[in-house]
């Protein structure tokens, strides 16, 4: 099963997309316990894109493609903003320390690395693609 969703680069699009992703997962027979991690990882990536990737005032469309096969779910997020490779361009999240020293930055990418089985990022000709894979539970 495959479906593509397009959203504008606006934060308010994210909860709307989450409902559509949930419906897709239900139809595709993805276990309910996987839906939250999928939507969380998408939310974190899209929130980052919307906040940092687009430095002009133009409207941008982000495409989210979901595809299920026997080997699991593949999520592809395509954007035309500034490239940002989550595997190489971000420091590791700081996960220790007490309330005073702890910083919250980097948690979104930490979720991605923890909850997804494979992460791939490609950027060419002004088009960026994040490809996430999650094996069946």
């Amino acid at each position: 099963m495959q479906r593509a969703f397009r959203i504008q680069s606006e934060l308010r699009e994210i909860p709307r997309l989450a409902e559509q992703v949930e419906a897709f997962c239900e139809e595709a027979g993805i276990p309910v316990s996987s839906v939250y991690p999928i939507n969380l990882v998408l939310d974190e990536w899209l929130t980052n894109l919307i906040a940092y990737a687009f430095d002009d005032d133009a409207e941008h469309t982000i495409e989210v493609d979901l595809r299920t096969a026997d080997d699991g779910l593949t999520i592809t997020v395509t954007d035309d903003g500034q490239a940002f490779n989550p595997l190489t361009d971000a420091p590791e999240a700081q996960l220790d320390g007490d309330v005073d020293s702890r910083q919250v930055g980097g948690l979104g990418l930490h979720f991605m690395k923890t909850l997804m089985d494979e992460i791939d990022y490609r950027s060419a000709d002004g088009v960026n693609r994040l490809i996430l894979r999650k094996q069946p539970v």
Partner: peptide, 19 residues
């Protein structure tokens, strides 16, 4: 129903302030 890192950030900021 749902919390992301944005919500966790609020908890951390609140914990710092309460302290």
């Amino acid at each position: 129903d749902y919390i992301s890192s944005a919500g966790l950030r609020v908890m951390l900021m609140t914990a710092k302030k309460v302290k």
